[in-house]
Amino acid sequence: MPWKLASLGTLLAAVMLTGCSSTTESAKDTGVTETGHSRCEAKAAEFTIGKKASPELLEQARTRSGAQSARFLQPDDMVTLEYRSDRLNLNTDTHLVVVRVNCG
């Protein structure tokens, strides 16, 4: 008899926990991350390659890519190793011309 109660309790707990699980399918469809921020799409900002860095260019690239934030990175800039899927990076050469676009 006690093993029946234990089995029933385990089954009940499993059923209750499945109701608590959630899927992120809707987040994947909309491009919104689990933190509520939009995901960066670097392809949309590739129009900046070959252009001179400016605040206007940075804002245009951020808007088009859907990124929450954006920054220019020069060759000798120190950066943290944190990855943020909602941040756009515009990598420049020493003459401040954009040479690469990526998210992170």
Results as ranks from 00 to 15, higher is better:
P2V: 07
K4R: 15
K4I: 12
L5H: 10
A6L: 15
A6S: 10
S7A: 15
T10N: 03
L12Q: 02
A14S: 15
V15Q: 11
T18M: 12
G19Y: 10
G19K: 08
G19L: 11
C20L: 14
S21Q: 09
S22C: 03
T23N: 08
T24V: 12
S26M: 04
A27G: 03
K28Q: 13
T30S: 15
G31V: 04
T33N: 10
H37G: 00
H37S: 12
S38Y: 09
C40K: 06
C40S: 09
A44W: 04
E46T: 14
F47I: 07
T48Q: 03
T48V: 14
I49Y: 07
K51Y: 05
A53E: 09
S54P: 04
L58A: 06
Q60S: 08
R62L: 05
R64G: 12
G66A: 06
S69R: 14
R71I: 04
F72N: 04
D77S: 14
M78A: 14
E82N: 12
Y83E: 07
R84W: 00
S85H: 11
S85V: 09
L88V: 08
L88D: 05
N89D: 11
L90W: 07
N91Y: 11
D93I: 02
V97Q: 12
V98K: 03
V99T: 15
V101K: 03
N102R: 08
N102D: 15
C103L: 05
